[in-house]
Simulated scan of single mutants.
Amino acid sequence: MNCRAVIAGFSTAFAAVFIWTASAFAQPAPLASWNDGASKQAIVEFVEAVTADGGPDYVAPADRIATFDNDGTLWVEHPMYTQLAFALDRVKALASEHPEWKTTPPFQAVLENDMEALGRSGHKGLMEIIAATHAGMSTDAFEKITSDWIATARHPRFHRPYTDLVYQPMLELLDYLRANGFKTFIVSGGGIEFMRPWTEEVYGIPAEQVVGSSIVTEYTVVDGLPELMRLPEIAFVDDKAGKPVGILTHIGKRPIAAFGNSDGDYEMLQYTTAGPGKRLGMFVHHDDADREYAYDRDTHFGRLDKGLDDASKEGWHLISMKDDWNQIFPGK
């Protein structure tokens, strides 16, 4: 082989190595917003174990199901649940059509921004607000109202759209799981039709992979056109013991990984990790008052009490927002 051929061969090999190296460096590291520690290690070890073909913990792709709570797990839930903020805004938007609300609890409390009085109205008051703001319209009309609101509403502390206040580490976790053959689902106490219009754009989770609470809908024909009308009656509450029921009804398989942040997710983690084989259950623990919020046992939204006590016993991991995440929100 002459010198020119050797040089040409060397150049080709060098170019191939350079291209491969550049490509490798161009790929963002998985879980980049997670600090090295027990939580990140638990996730990586779990995924490597269940995807190792021929290994003792291997799980076929069809059974790699991971479920995620939404409020407080994938996006911010303080100072109140986002859907509650939507409902309160809807009361104010509809107030001109209902002058009686000025003197009628719980609507009076909303219009006067009296959150203490609203809190005293309890579950009954909340259901009245949901009935007034979420029902009496078609599903198509509700989807438009929801989409318009989510596109313009801003969080009172961060002054950013709610869809900007998703957790960057959890977005990376969703991507990491999907890159390893998982199918990811939202299983939330929030309204299923409140979430579905935007979850694919924000999380990469399509509408058919969203499980949530629902109100009664009724098929009807209006001016010759078929419609589904939303009625002022709760059909299903996808919270606490309702979450495993929702999983069975909508997904039909027991997950092998579940992620939550409150006692409302306790039964979902319990149901998930009680199955055979390798399992993963994790709670996001809100302990970062500077970058987000710090709360667990003493809060009206996202209370983590029993889960905090039982996590170690159940083999569940607590994700410290303060220690495990080097970034909270995208772009921050």
Rank of each mutant, 00 (worst) to 15 (best):
L231W: 05
F283N: 01
L231F: 07
A274S: 14
I256A: 01
H285W: 10
A257P: 06
I215V: 11
S312I: 10
F259C: 02
F283D: 00
Q209H: 12
L225Q: 11
D288M: 08
G315Y: 07
D239A: 08
R297D: 07
V245L: 14
G315Q: 05
M282L: 15
G242W: 10
K240G: 09
R297L: 10
H300S: 12
M282Q: 08
A289W: 07
I215N: 04
W316N: 00
L231I: 15
P255R: 04
G242N: 06
V237M: 14
L308T: 01
Y219A: 12
D310A: 09
G307Q: 01
T220I: 08
G302Y: 03
R303F: 02
M229L: 12
Q209K: 11
V221W: 08
G242H: 10
E208G: 02
F259N: 00
V284R: 02
E314T: 05
N261T: 08
G252L: 10
R291D: 04
R230I: 14
S213I: 09
A311I: 11
Q270R: 10
G212W: 04
G242P: 10
R279I: 10
A294W: 01
L269A: 01
R279E: 02
L225R: 13
H300G: 08
H250V: 11
G260N: 04
S214M: 09
G281S: 07
L304W: 06
H250Q: 15
D310I: 04
L231D: 00
G260M: 07
A241N: 13
W316E: 00
T220F: 10
A294H: 05
E267F: 10
P255H: 04
V216N: 01
D290L: 09
D263Y: 08
K313T: 13
A274P: 00
L225V: 14
F283C: 02
P206G: 07
R297M: 09
R230S: 04
L269V: 07
E227D: 08
E233L: 14
H285E: 08
I247M: 11
E233V: 13
D263F: 06
V211N: 00
D287Q: 04
V211D: 00
D290G: 07
G246F: 12
V211K: 01
D310W: 04
Y271A: 05
S213H: 03
S214R: 12
T299Y: 03
W316D: 00
A258M: 08
G242T: 10
E233F: 13
D287S: 07
Y295M: 09
K306P: 02
H300P: 01
D298R: 09
G246N: 07
D309F: 13
P232A: 06
Y293E: 06
P276A: 14
P206H: 05
M282C: 11
T273M: 12
Y271T: 03
E267N: 13
G246D: 05
A274K: 09
A235T: 06
E292P: 02
G212Y: 02
L228F: 13
Q270K: 11
D263I: 09
R254E: 04
I234A: 09
D265Y: 11
T299W: 01
D223E: 15
K253G: 01
P244K: 05
T249M: 14
V221H: 05
T299Q: 01
D296A: 14
Y219K: 13
T220N: 07
